[in-house]
């Protein structure tokens, strides 16, 4: 990230951050900040709400209206805030466990309502803060402190889940593909409705070490080597897709009314004003 953006958007005196050496969370947060800057949004008009976990500590570093709330439940708080002040650009930061396990119900309902929130899922495939337990996004066959004999649970594709539940914008990028990540976050913020961006990132300390790929750069190289741009992905056979994942904007639709705008119609009906 550019130095000028660190100075503009990071709270003075709060760096270095608490993340481990090589943790991709800092890179993802940098991409979010760059996307906000590219969109030209005033800091006062951004709210940055997070749950609990490593990635959720991101809210404390950035100079917006910020809240580090409870585990898995940043989305309801963000929804209430957006209802109170629909002019705010509300960004939600959540980890894979935060978002897909304890917060899974809130995710599908925020998607169903199509509230204009931008959810960034920092997916490092592990619970990092508590020391390396498997999450619903941990690939099957991985080692974790709570899976000493390897995981047997299939992982969610968080974007398929969100899209099926009604999310009107889904995109994926990695901490290696920084310009792409920045670009899809920008598009997600611009999208009027519920946007979910999966940021594939690395946890060298708690996922890498247990799964024999501890070097941060090698984990990032893995992202480079396994991500496939959406346009190419669409031309690949199932055999070619094995072990890979698509990146880029994966879906966008604009035929569903945004929730706070739909609610304005409720107010007009209740007040007997015709639309």
């Amino acid at each position: 990230m550019k130095e000028a953006l660190v100075e503009k958007y990071f709270r003075a005196g709060h760096l270095p951050h608490l993340w481990c050496p090589g943790c991709g969370n800092g890179t993802v947060l940098g991409a979010i900040v760059t996307a906000i800057d590219n969109r030209g949004i005033d800091k006062n008009d951004v709210a940055f709400i997070s749950g609990i976990g490593c990635s959720s500590r991101s809210s404390g570093y950035v100079d917006f209206n910020t809240a580090n709330t409870v585990h898995g439940r940043a989305l309801p708080i963000a929804t209430g805030l957006k209802m109170a002040n629909p002019k705010l650009n509300v960004i939600v930061a959540s980890g894979d466990g935060d978002c897909s396990a304890i917060g899974g119900n809130h995710l599908i309902h925020a998607a169903r309502r199509n509230v204009d929130l931008t959810l960034i899922v920092f997916n490092n495939s592990i619970y990092g803060m508590t020391g390396g337990q498997y999450s619903p996004l941990t690939p099957v066959g991985s080692r974790a402190t709570t899976a000493p004999y390897l995981t047997i649970e299939p992982a969610f594709d968080i974007l398929d889940l969100a899209r099926a539940a009604g999310a009107t914008f889904t995109a994926r990028a990695t901490s290696y593909h920084v310009p792409l990540l920045t670009s899809v976050i920008e598009k997600g913020i611009a999208h009027k409705g519920f946007s979910v961006i999966e940021a594939v990132t690395a946890c060298p300390t708690n996922f890498g070490r247990q799964n024999k790929i501890a070097a941060p750069a090698l984990m990032m190289a893995w992202q480079r080597d396994h991500a496939v741009m959406k346009a190419k992905w669409d031309t690949m056979t199932d055999a070619e897709r094995e072990g890979k994942f698509p990146v880029g904007v994966l879906s966008e639709r604009n035929d569903v009314k945004e929730y706070t705008e739909a609610y304005d119609e409720i107010i007009r009906r209740a007040q007997g004003v015709s639309a």
Binding site: R73, I77, T79
Partner: peptide, 27 residues
């Protein structure tokens, strides 16, 4: 909505208070 306010039936009890906290932060 008659007085310009907003009501949400949330997905669960926890989200109910979550939205309330968010709305309160919004003023």
């Amino acid at each position: 909505p008659m007085v310009g306010g907003k009501f949400m039936q949330t997905e669960d009890e926890i989200a109910g208070l979550g939205t309330v906290i968010g709305a309160s932060l919004g003023g």
